[in-house]
Design a protein around this nucleic acid. Structure first.
Lengths: 376, 376
DNA sequence: TGGAAATCTGAATCCCTCA
DNA sequence: CTGAGGGATTCAGATTTCC
């Protein structure tokens, strides 16, 4: 499934097969230039936080350093790091679909700069997520708190941040039916999962655990989506994407990492289709108009609906609206109106008499939906 | 113990008694100008978060969320916020002893900008600390992860970050003899601790829990140290400092906050040494999600679960839900569904094949729990 | 009066489709 | 592009109300 291609083999607009599920060797920003606009659903980035980067150093803002000019070098390297961050973030945004999202992971050494740059570039932060490590390295000198977490930022590439994929219902169902929080607990990558070379030395210094990537991809992608990792490293993103039925694109400069990642990904067995389907909630169900209940004869015009406590009532009219005390409108509008609220879900608010009991009209919608499902 | 002084009463070099253990009314930067150089051991700052909220937010029951829309949280732009941040940080650094440290708390709305500014100004970050909330506000619309934490940055005012106070051994001893991690678990401030006015309305929209301040001061100050809070608000810093035998200086613009804080602090009884471990108590048994079993590799997607008598079966999906005969959901919902019941404990209902025997998945949860017990 | 049930609330950048 | 409208969406804990 995975292959390594050089930059020369890729030109903008090439058919997807040439770069999908492959590792592109080269510098991150340059390699991204070769990918088409709006071609990626999610970016996961684990950028370096080494501040000794190459490239031009821009002049620092004197107002910021003021009394402290013996730290020039360090300040200058922050500037360089920021320029580097801007460059790869902008390159990622071009290839990212407007409805896509971007993840970045970092530690306190770099994540504040990355987050501020994201905001400067008009990305819209959706969450910051804390990866709590079950087994972090201790602080040996006893001069600080044990650094037991890393921070991820999840952001939309545009200011409003609408329309992105978030598998809320599946996450909630997998989490004992309570919504997933912003603090996640995982072990660091070690043991059999950690890639080692022939001499038993670790292949990559900061290999991320597959469980972390799995939650990220399960949360923010659908099967068949394209996931880009501009700092591919040992290929955790690719391995998890392949296993979960997502496409990947990796960018990496170091040949040794590419070799290890390609071998690793080749050994991954994708999960079957049945295991990959994502649980969805009511939002994904087909829309049923209230009128359908009337047309199907389930509710007859003239029927009186009430709320669960019979405080309010309304009469069903032949045109699919309901009326109460001179007011008329949709089940939602009238439900809101009688309660003096801005909004109301008429399906769960209004009830009908079913022999002895009072039942929400939503039960009737469920019957319609179940009938519709049999037709497919 | 506490008193309110105006700016005019304070001149640089005044003897400590004039401003120690008092609340200075005024703008934070201007007020700081009046304090002597190198006079403060620790700064705790809870600056405006610049939330940038949109329209009104309602809960599913249509009730209105009481948003933080105060005038003091509004900034025209990120640039304006950054300039504000630089100004108060520089003012704090002047009054801070070189061996002192500074704490800032924030959320993803502002903390990245604050962190980057700290670095730009040559502060040295010692740790970032995560305050995990036991009872955060949910995400009502199901469009994001529940925002369940806030971030603190702990920094030294100079590049090397040497000589600061860190009560490592005391923290370790209070933490079951393991070193204190960078993720802390506390409830939000509510109940009797939350200051209310005569009408029962909260005095301040973002009052911080005393337990949080207690850990901060126990970690980074010694008895008799001076703690400065440039955004004093309802005076949590002052109350905790007084209780723990530290001096405080608060700066606050709003008279209503000053009045409430002064009254609050006056009522505080300084503690003897013994009582503090109460504040750092641990929480009960942690919740374990079914997803954790998948993410940890104990249960693989595609695994078939059955009930104890093998009458029902379900397949585990990669999203952490289980599916059976076209139905899918959490282990609890599907367990209820297949039995035709309203509710079901999926942990004890569903079983997996363990070699020759059938064992409840609850056994696996027990293993996870014993691993997690070390973490709180 | 006691226990159960209902209500209230917290630093929140909180919808999506179609005309 | 905007505007209208359907209709989906919450966790823990304290407090108040009800029976």
């Amino acid at each position: 499934m995975s292959s390594v291609v050089s930059l020369a083999e890729i030109s903008r607009g090439a058919r997807p097969a040439s770069w999908l599920d492959s590792i592109i060797k080269g510098d991150c920003v340059a390699a991204l230039e070769a990918l088409p606009d709006n071609s990626v659903d999610v970016v996961f980035a684990d950028p370096p936080y080494n501040l000794q980067l190459g490239g031009a150093l821009t002049r620092p803002d004197q107002s910021l350093v003021d009394a402290v000019d013996d730290e020039w070098d360090q300040f200058a390297s922050f500037e360089a790091y920021d320029a580097f961050t801007r460059a790869w973030l902008l390159a990622c945004r071009r290839v990212l679909k407007p409805t896509g999202t971007l993840w970045v992971i970092g530690s306190y050494h770099n994540i504040f700069r990355v987050g501020a740059t994201l905001q400067d570039l008009n990305f819209w932060i959706l969450n910051d997520i804390i990866w709590r490590k079950t087994n972090p390295m201790p602080n040996f000198k006893g001069r600080r708190f044990q650094n037991a977490h890393e921070t991820l930022i999840w952001a939309s590439p545009n200011a409003k941040g609408k329309g992105y994929t978030f598998n809320y219902d599946a996450l909630k169902a997998s989490n004992d039916d309570v919504q997933m929080r912003s603090d996640w607990l995982f072990p660091i990558c070690s043991g059999g999962e950690r890639l080692k070379d022939d001499e038993g030395k670790k292949v990559h210094p900061t290999q991320k655990p597959e469980a972390l990537l799995a939650r990220i991809l399960m949360a923010s992608t659908k099967p068949g989506d394209v996931v880009l990792d501009p700092f591919f490293g040992s290929g955790t993103t690719g391995a998890v994407a392949k296993r979960l039925g997502r496409h990947f694109v990796g960018i990496e400069r170091e040949q040794s990492y590419i070799d290890a990642a390609a071998e690793r990904i080749a050994a991954v067995e994708p999960l079957g289709k049945a295991t990959l389907s994502v649980m969805t909630g009511k939002k994904a169900e087909p829309r049923v108009a209230f009128n359908t209940l009337i047309e199907s004869g389930m509710i007859k015009p003239g029927t009186v609906l009430t709320d669960a406590k019979r405080r309010y009532s309304a009469i069903v009219r032949a045109d699919g609206t309901v009326a109460s005390g001179g007011e008329a409108g949709s089940i939602h509008r009238l439900g809101a109106r009688v309660q003096g609220l801005d909004a109301c879900n008429g399906w769960t608010f209004w009830h009908y008499e079913d022999g002895t009991s009072l039942r929400p009209i939503d039960d009737l919608r469920a019957v319609i939906r179940s009938d519709m499902a049999k037709l497919n």
